[in-house]
Amino acid sequence: MSPAILEFDSLSKAYGRLQALRSASFSVRAGEIFGFVGSNGAGKTTAMRIALGVLAADAGEVRWAGAPLDLEARRRVGYMPEERGLYPRMKVGGQLVYLGRLHGMSPAEARAAMEAWTLRLGVAGRRDDEVQKLSLGNQQRVQLTAALMHDPSVLILDEPFSGLDPVAVDVMSDVLRERADAGVPVVFSSHQLALVEGLCDRVGIIRNGSMVAVGSIAELRRTEAPRWVVDAPDAPAGWADGLPGVAVVGLDRTRTTLEVSSTAPGAEQAVLAAALRTGRVREFAPVRPSLAELYRDVVSQAEPPLPSAPPATRGRSRWTRRGDAA
């Protein structure tokens, strides 16, 4: 049997002269939560819509367990579109049962699942209300119920966290983790990078329709030129100059940030030794950039400089473009 992997394989899509996706590839293993990040208009929604068949790709395809994700297979996908969509004048319960049935459930199954999931997501009391009478946050919960209630084998969620209150964010995170633990590949897009960093097993960053980074946060941090920070209060200016394969990329009072481009194991030890020769060393640690920092770094590259943008101090890339490791 083919491995249970959701593969986005070389997707390309143009809207007229706008190239929305340029051969974008990544894959999500069963049981994995994949965070899909990128600027507005980078191509996240386009990729997800192609996966759900509501948009046709110019090239490439989406496969699940080795087979193209066709209509039959898509009924087993839980989908939350970026543009939330429910019938405004239909009651919550009836609407969810209808959507469950479109996914292939029997009336009894759909009713039972609707009852269980509305209870879990805290909208059980609103089953007999029209959707338009609910607050946006509660409509969002109903939308998530619609994506989850048919026990999907794959979850594809476009911005599931936008507009949720902190409690709902926790519920949503728990549900996604639970589904992933049950063996479901989960893909979601988000601009809340701290949340993505905390929740996702792997992350993909898309820019201008191309995947520029794919991997776990640890993998994304592992670069060919790791950075170290040294706090040496007694060190004179230029103390690190002349160290082979080491470049000073930042200085904040007594803290020096260095980029070690040497690939030799233990190359950073030379930096520590040099620092110790200047006197006290209060801190010596690898720089562990947050996803937000990694993201800014990747996305800012090769973009036309804006007049108001801060000077580009980041220099050359700490990144290499990675293929899809999966």
């Binding site: 819509r49 759900l52 068949g53 509501v54 209509l71 898509r74 009924r75 996908v77 989908y79 579109p81 543009e83 939330r84 969509g85 429910l86 019938y87 405004p88 959507l99 479109l102 996914h103 619609a146």
Partner: peptide, 17 residues
């Protein structure tokens, strides 16, 4: 048009033609 305006059509068309 109601389905288009409310965007529910995208959810529907992920399951039916």
């Amino acid at each position: 048009v109601e389905e288009k305006t409310s965007r529910v059509v995208e959810l529907l068309l992920s399951t039916i033609r």
